[in-house]
Design a binder for these strands. Sequence first.
RNA 1: GCCCACGUAGCUCAGUCGGUAGAGCACAUCCUUGGUAAGGAUGAGGUCACCAGUUCAAUCCUGGUCGUGGGCUCCA
Length: 639
Amino acid sequence: MDEIKIVFPDGSAGQCNYGTTIKEIIASWKKEMLPSIVAAKLNNKPVDLSHPIIEEPAALSLINIEAKEGLEILRHSISHVMAQAVKDLFDGVQITIGPSIEEGFYYDFDYSENFTPEDLTKIEERMREIVAADYPFVRREMSRQEAVSFFRERGETYKVELLNELPEDVRTISLYSQGGYVDLCRGPHIPSTGMIRAFKLLNVAGAYWRGDERNKMLQRIYGTGFATEKALAEYLHIVEEAKKRDHRKLGKELDLFQMNDEAGPGLIIFHPKGARLRNIIEDWERKEHLKRGYEMVIGPQILKADLWKRSGHFDHYRESMYFTEVEDQTYGIKPMNCLAHMLIYKSKIRSYRDLPLRYFELGTVHRHEKTGVLHGLMRARQFTQDDAHILCTPEQLNGEITAIADFVSYAMQVFGFDYDVEFSTRPEKSIGSDEEWEMATAALEGALKINKIEHEVNEGDGAFYGPKIDFKLKDALKRKWQCATIQCDFTLPERFDLSYIGADGEKHRPVMLHRVILGAIERFMGVLIEHHAGAFPVWLSPVQAVLMTVTDKHIPYGEKVYNDLIEAGIRAERDFRNEKLGYKIREAQMQKVPYMLVIGDREMESNKVSPRERSGKDLGATGVDEFIELVREKSAQYQ
RNA sequence: GCCCACGUAGCUCAGUCGGUAGAGCACAUCCUUGGUAAGGAUGAGGUCACCAGUUCAAUCCUGGUCGUGGGCUCCA
């Protein structure tokens, strides 16, 4: 067979000689495209550009460097270049794995010394040399046996381990090399190192071999790469922007909360303004839950350990719980709110006519999170969930899930977020029977299907007592945050022997849903802070307006206006200090207060205020009532 | 919990190759009464995270503890 029929990416037909490489085909077809093509797909299989065409049919499509897939290949190739640079510079380094990840790539190394930030600079320099040398990425295939002895000879024991753990049926192993560096890799890769134009090494971190904490800690170098310098600069700019928005930084600057060494790690102390913000959110929660048929309940903070044994928490969640001894009794400090809700249900005989019962609690829980995971408001040891437990008949399950999904959708709209939905199934460590899990899984999945809710599936990611639907909101920087979740639980009603009397006069087991809407209020506040960069919309602003006098003689009138605003429920503050107006404005601006009300001669004479928006826009002289109305309009969600 | 880095005034940070520290902002007092992002002067403020060790001498070196940050594992 000398001639092979090929189908070009645009669908047109052509032919080439047996063994012609894809690169050669593109060169003769549309040469100008070559610089932006990292790899190709041959009959939908990703391959290198150096791949020869030796089979029919040969349908080609190209992978552009700017496309998601192209970027992944580019980054993966950069990680190989980085590994080469590290091997060149440091003796005795063992390479392990180095994939591309969402925002870049990493490579894990086993090395006796620690890499320093200066080392990163050196590695980058060496990488630039490798890029300048324009080494081709060469694919080589060998048998499993050959590959094992090849890496064993080179002292790359991690690669040998990887090879040994490949499934039996993998017989041929592919290796990629560039400029003397060889790595075990499936590929494809970019044609040569010269194609790399924009990359940066970001930081060094520890990472367990194969992500298992029982294994050795390796050193991971993170980096990122883009098709162009411009795209890299844009990415680095977003990283900077994220740093500026860091809720821990803004929390301090805006005087919202503190974390205090003396109080303990993971414990949040809300300052007046942070407490106000939190109260606004919680008021909104109560109002919305009452509207939707929830009843508010309040459980105790500690419950006897025996009860936690009964619920299964003692066996499955003990490591994350705090315990305390009182009068020879062990009490568990609640890490979840469900127990008291179970006891409320059990306090009397329930009829099917009572269901569904929806118990809502802004429940404060304590979880003994590992120190290394604590992160400002996002990950604390004490936090408050907008938690509810719904007890219903199996038939009602669908409607309840639908209603929750609607609630979440409404909440996200009110707070201004987009979101994704993820569905998680049974994890390894779980309680309950197979049938229960199947029923619960089918119920959640069914509701998603009926309501046509688009979602991803995370196998094995569910809670230990049931499968769950997670809603991940997306903030202004497109970062995802876990907030709402719906978890189906057939186990707890069983363990607590919950029942209701059905229309048939018989006892039946109710089904339970655990759900949160905003999740942890603390985390949600953290997300809000970062989403708005601290400049909250009027309805959420801890301080909605600052009154500022031009001179001391305006203070009496200022006090009168202040009283009017406070009376009307506006969160106003006074800045009547002996400072210039510009100074007061600057301060209010940095505190990101939505309105600054200037009070001088003109306002005093006309009985008005002059609001200046946070944007810098001057609204001109406005009656006090008129201003109150304006703020009310902008706070409609809250009223 | 694990790996690495870090911890200096209320905040942001400088500094001391071992001889008990400094700036800007904030704060206080005084002057100034000034219309849309910093008016001026003076002053107060630190057991250099904590505990040991080495040393004539430790904020600096060593070890430990606590905390913070970036990750890993885990998770609302």
